[in-house]
């Protein structure tokens, strides 16, 4: 765990929030949750407890059953400004028939405020393209830049989705199991790049991770969802500690 110079204004603020798809079947109740710029927070828990649903609710894709959800200073149903929120869904959400560059450019375009929106989107600026190429290179995909996504392996596709978010330069990155299907060396590389970005640009990273060991390793704060509640992770005493 590292010491982070916390900003006073949280980037995510949840108050008395209940999340779920159906009003009668709430998944998680969150009395209070605040995540600050520069912070890396991991959420762990068994399958089906609502980790991904929580991310979707914060991303504004699902309406909370009750409570207030504030992201980047905007309360739901208002959305964060264009490009402020980067989201890597569990199923990645890549355009399978398009190239790696096309997919990463989506992120770069959304993070780049073009003076003329329509023209700017059809003819992206060289700055956006530079950002996209930089993100692709940082994920070690420079040789795959023109390959269609469907020809890439699962792990490479995850790196493309991460590159898309990095190219966006968001204030908040939300990633749903973005390190699965990757080998240890690639995990170090991807995690290193994402952490470097978060620390250098004072962004926040909220990540869903089912591997508790990895979650503890990467995060400043680990939250566990269990039995419909979200709690800080408390380390269980090891066998050695029990003996002492």
């Amino acid at each position: 765990m590292t010491d982070i110079p916390w900003s006073t204004e949280p980037i995510i603020r949840l108050n008395d929030v209940t999340i779920g798809y159906k009003e009668k079947e709430p998944l998680v109740e969150i009395p209070n949750l605040e995540i600050f710029p520069g912070e890396i927070v991991a959420i762990a828990g068994p399958s089906g407890v609502g980790k991904s649903t929580l991310l979707k609710t914060i991303a504004g894709l699902i309406r909370p059953i009750s409570g207030s959800v504030e992201v980047c200073g905007k309360s739901f149903p208002n959305r964060p400004n264009r490009g402020e929120l980067g989201y890597v869904p569990q199923s990645l959400g890549l355009v399978r028939h398009a190239s790696v560059l096309h997919n990463v450019m989506l992120g770069a375009d959304s993070g780049h405020n073009n003076p003329i929106p329509f023209i700017g989107f059809c003819f992206p600026s060289s700055l956006a393209k530079k950002k996209a190429i930089q993100a692709i290179n940082s994920m070690g995909l420079e040789e795959k830049i023109n390959e269609p996504i469907r020809r890439l392996s699962g792990g490479q596709q995850r790196r493309v989705a991460t590159a898309r978010t990095l190219a966006q330069c968001p204030d908040l990155i939300m990633a749903d199991e973005f390190l699965s299907e990757l080998d240890e060396k690639t995990i170090d590389m991807v995690l290193g790049e994402v952490t470097k970005y978060v620390r250098s640009s004072n962004a926040a990273l909220l990540v869903v991770e089912h591997d508790i060991t990895r979650a503890k390793m990467m995060a400043d704060r680990l939250l566990v969802i269990d039995d419909g509640r979200i709690n800080p992770f408390i380390t269980e005493p090891t066998a050695m500690e029990v003996k002492i």
Binding site: A59, L61, R82, G86, L92, G93, H102, D109, S110
Partner: peptide, 21 residues
């Protein structure tokens, strides 16, 4: 639905999503 969700979360407009996704 996932690519549409990702575009919406990024803040792309409906037009941009239609053309690029």
């Amino acid at each position: 639905k996932v690519p549409l969700d990702a575009s919406e979360a990024m803040g792309l407009s409906k037009f941009e999503t239609a053309i690029k996704v």
